[in-house]
């Protein structure tokens, strides 16, 4: 397995997923890097989609272990990390900060499983791949995901009613 090619393809989405999941930069980097170290050190081989599932599953389990204590997880989710980047006006900065806070609080209101499913879906995983990571039946993913997304959307302040 080519180290650089695999790293370039896998690390950015993996650390983004871990960060969305935890709300904590250090925890996200730790989990994503630990998963990649295990991948390379254990010489895990396979087609790219299978490797991706393996990495996300490993990182998800690392994060579950780390945040098994609920209070610890809550404390980290409530962290409000600083976003580096180009300077922006105070109004836009405030707006972005509020958007971020609202999204984080909405995620916090989901169960661990709902949060993991939702974030994996928005990383482009198929329902079957999500089922593999979350350990649910593939046929249940659509219903569970719909519920998770609806709850997240409602927590954001949107109406959950279908037309």
């Amino acid at each position: 397995m080519d180290f650089d090619a695999t790293f370039d393809a896998m690390y950015p989405p993996l650390v983004r997923y871990c960060h969305r999941l935890t709300g904590d930069r250090d925890a996200a980097e730790d989990a994503a890097q630990e998963a990649l170290v295990r991948l390379f050190a254990r010489s895990v081989e396979g087609p790219a989609p299978a490797v991706r599932v393996w990495l996300f599953k490993t990182a998800t389990h690392l994060i579950r272990d780390r945040y098994r204590v609920e209070e610890n997880r809550r404390r980290l989710l409530q962290a409000n990390p600083v976003t580096p980047g180009a300077p922006e006006g105070p109004e836009r900065s405030l707006e972005r900060s509020m958007e971020r806070e609202r999204a984080r609080r909405a995620l916090e209101r989901l169960t661990d499983r709902d949060r993991e499913m939702l974030l994996m879906r928005y990383e482009g995983f198929s329902y079957r791949e999500i089922a593999d990571v979350i350990d649910v039946a593939a046929t249940s993913v659509g219903t569970l995901l719909a519920r998770a997304e609806r709850r997240f959307f409602e927590a954001l302040g949107g109406s959950g009613e279908m037309a």
Binding site: D4, F7, D8, Y11, P12, V15, R16, H19, R20, G23, R25, E29, A32, Q33, P81, T83, P84, G85, R96, E99, R100, R102, A103, R104, A106, L107, L118, L119, Y122, E149, F152, F153, L156, G158
Partner: peptide, 19 residues
């Protein structure tokens, strides 16, 4: 709307340091 909300959480990462 969900995609936009999740994107608001994203940050920049030092990929080379991680590599």
């Amino acid at each position: 709307a969900v995609e936009a909300a999740l994107s608001s959480l994203d940050e920049q990462w030092d990929v080379e340091a991680a590599r």
